[in-house]
């Protein structure tokens, strides 16, 4: 698990590193500003699905803080 954490952090740092040369100017955000380009374009839908999967599968979270708030028996 420690190795996985180290590797994941390396990937994240690399991404942060290459980010310095990526990106757009503010006036190039026409497409990114559309609601369908939001990372979570329908938070209620995301919450419903995460709750369903949390109660039927052994995994949760990832996108945000996972699961919780449910006995789900």
């Amino acid at each position: 698990m420690i190795r996985l954490i180290t590797r994941s952090l390396l990937v994240l740092l690399t991404l942060a590193g290459i980010s310095a040369c990526a990106g757009v100017k503010p006036w190039e955000r026409d497409l990114l500003a559309k609601p369908q380009m939001e990372l979570d374009s329908d938070p209620l839908q995301t919450a419903f699905d995460e709750h369903i999967y949390f109660s039927k599968e052994a995994s949760s979270g990832g996108r945000g803080f996972g699961g919780g708030g449910c006995g789900c028996n």
């Binding site: 990106g23 757009v24 990372l39």
Partner: peptide, 9 residues
Amino acid sequence: FGVTQVLNR
């Protein structure tokens, strides 16, 4: 811990 990055337009 998260990183969000705009890669291009």
